[in-house]
Design a binder for these strands. Structure first.
Length: 209
DNA sequence: CTTTGGATCGTCT
DNA sequence: GACGATCCAAAGG
């Protein structure tokens, strides 16, 4: 399998409103060691002005990363068993993030299948925010990592086990975002359910149900 | 295919 | 003490 190639994103591209950054992130690639997937579904969370955001009630230990510089990963734990990952937006001091809801698996499918035995088909490996974290081994340990940091020389093999030391990066392989992405309301929330801040790549089979 | 309910624990009230 | 930015297995059509 040929490794994905691409350049790091510009941090300036993530300085904006999550509602603008979210569709722009579609078709970018999330890489962890030998595993990689193309972003095909996202949701924008606008921080203190968004009742559905974890930052709606201000700075807390859990959401502190969202108040940091853009381009870092905000990871949270939910439902007593799941991890979910966001790309931090807006300048330092202002909370905002884009939840990554689904990836189209590109590389390391074998490792993903090994960690996700519940996935019957490959399209089920990363078609949900907690599923993709499981597939890439994203946990609390990855909260706050810089997705745009230059990649150092490969430290070791990406084994199915410990992923904590394996870097996570966001890269651009020059596949542009869709000119006309799917757009609709966000999923799984009980407030601010009417705003259309969910975006996806139309027709991609890994978009969540 | 769709619907339903259980699992499970950190965070905030 | 309640409730999640969810997933999955089981049951029903």
């Amino acid at each position: 399998m040929t490794p994905v190639r691409g350049s790091a994103l510009e941090r300036a591209d993530l300085l904006g409103d999550p509602v603008d950054v979210a569709p722009w992130l579609l078709n970018k690639i999330l890489v962890r060691g030998d595993r990689a997937g193309r972003i095909v579904e996202v949701e924008a969370y606008r921080g203190e002005s968004d009742a559905a955001s974890h930052a709606f009630r201000g700075l807390r230990p859990r959401n502190a990363v969202m108040y940091g510089p853009p381009g870092h990963l905000y990871v949270y734990f939910t439902y007593g068993m799941h991890w979910c990952a966001n790309v931090v937006c807006w300048p330092e001091g202002r909370a905002g993030a884009v939840l990554i809801r689904a990836l189209s698996p590109l590389e390391g499918l074998g490792a993903m299948r090994a960690v996700r035995p519940a996935a019957r088909r490959d399209r089920d490996l990363c078609n949900g925010p907690a599923k993709l974290c499981q597939a890439l081994g994203i946990t609390k340990d990855d909260d706050g990592v810089d997705l745009l940091a230059p990649l150092r020389r490969r430290r070791g093999r990406d084994t199915v086990g410990a992923t904590a030391s394996v870097p996570i990066r966001l890269i651009d392989d020059r596949t542009p975002p869709p000119a006309r992405p799917g757009r609709g309301t966000r999923i799984g929330i009980s407030v601010a359910t009417e705003v259309p801040w969910r975006f996806w790549v139309r027709g991609d089979e890994s978009v969540s149900r």
